[in-house]
Design a protein around this nucleic acid. Sequence first.
DNA 1: CGCTGCTTTGAACAACTTCAACTTCTGTGG
DNA 2: CCACAGAAGTTGAAGTTGTTCAAAGCAGCG
Lengths: 258, 258
Amino acid sequence: MGEQEKVVDLAQIRVTCQSCSLNHLCLPMSIAVGDLDELERIIRHRRPLARGEHLFRMGDTLQHLYAVRAGSLKTYTTSEGGQEQITGFHLPGELLGLDGICEERHHVSAKALETTSLCEIPFAQLEDLGRRCQGLGHHLLRLMSKEIICDEHMLMVLGKLSAEQRLASFLVNIASRFHQRGFSVSEFNLSMSRNDIGNYLGLAVETVSRLFTRFQDDGLLQAARKHVHIRDMTGLRVVAGQTEERCITYPSGGPPHD
Amino acid sequence: MGEQEKVVDLAQIRVTCQSCSLNHLCLPMSIAVGDLDELERIIRHRRPLARGEHLFRMGDTLQHLYAVRAGSLKTYTTSEGGQEQITGFHLPGELLGLDGICEERHHVSAKALETTSLCEIPFAQLEDLGRRCQGLGHHLLRLMSKEIICDEHMLMVLGKLSAEQRLASFLVNIASRFHQRGFSVSEFNLSMSRNDIGNYLGLAVETVSRLFTRFQDDGLLQAARKHVHIRDMTGLRVVAGQTEERCITYPSGGPPHD
DNA sequence: CGCTGCTTTGAACAACTTCAACTTCTGTGG
DNA sequence: CCACAGAAGTTGAAGTTGTTCAAAGCAGCG
């Protein structure tokens, strides 16, 4: 508050998707160079969220989609009984709000897990632009399709896997998403609590905690609170029942360019 | 084989969405009357599937989306270990194949639960038409969004509900979908086996069977094999933990017109 | 009529949850 | 800078829910 010289109006900052380090993961990846200007024209920075703040709540009218620039969020639904189920964790480069298109209001709440900055994209304008720019329109469909695939993968996780397999599967998934973003596959800080992990995986916190201990004892990883160091990725994949890499994390026509 | 006079080339039958009893649930609901011709031009009937036949399999290239005309299907994923998880049951008026858009190949397999007839919609042409007909393009996004919502609702079911709540929730959902299609809310024939229900709900067959018996003893319903007669819908909703009607079954801007 | 597959029921068992206690971390104010 | 309170995480022991295994019942069909 006292640091007047540091205060800037973030909405004034010129957003350039071109210079964004995430553009290969985000909407711009699909768009013709000439049309990128148009996309940049409708995108705005949003004031960063502090840890625990909501981006939107279940029931809110859908005005914008959001792309994560830095930080992370969780989305969750609340049942009539007041129970919460986390439906996803969202890392930089990922799009939020697609569930809200159906009824023009959000069906999940989105809450920041840490200080998080986002791009705000007016949905009506994006849809309009999508009609004019073929690549963008198609990419939006692909992103929605990807979300369906991910959610249906989670149905398998919750419906068929044991607690051990669920946690291993979760860690493999998170590691590969970090890796895509240029971070280490094997060493990272989780932004979500054990409670959040348990909630997401349909397990009690205590079970998650015990499993971290067991994985550590088995030499699969070392975990100290949020910090995780995977020692044996192959072993972890075996526990998860995933030996092939067939997780959908990249909504492109072809495979990731690496 | 011998009944030559009954054999017709189904592909020759002029499909008219206008005359289809499901048009208020399906793609045409969103389309301007003038554009309906164009949609009808690209839609083809498909040879009906016999019970147990596949419409497509996981990994197949996505060529078409499909709309169920009559009958029903299940979609399921197969894990590396060969385990199957049913991701959805599909009734007349519902669209299949949306998961395949992301990578241009299906991520689930679709199998008929009974004799099933379908409309086949070439995806590329539909996408193209969606760009030209605003209503249709928007409706396609809504249908995908609806699928996300339904899948995320299932995450809650699998992650948080007890076996009893899961089955009650399933029955309430099926009943309301039958009702929308003009059938009785309270009396119907399930096209899926107990095994399929258990698989879908993350439960053992035996558990499902015991629950049917318990619901019957509690006077909530009467079940004889596939035939189900719901005696106390309110009671069933209470068990499911759903007292409000907030299941998303209709992807329209407003509520169903009844 | 006797097969086959689906469903139901019972009893033992296992996995995970719940409850309870304790430890470790984090942040805040004295 | 330390003390303290609250939150988050860990661990153990008891309890429950749902699974697994086994067997019998039932409908449909050649």
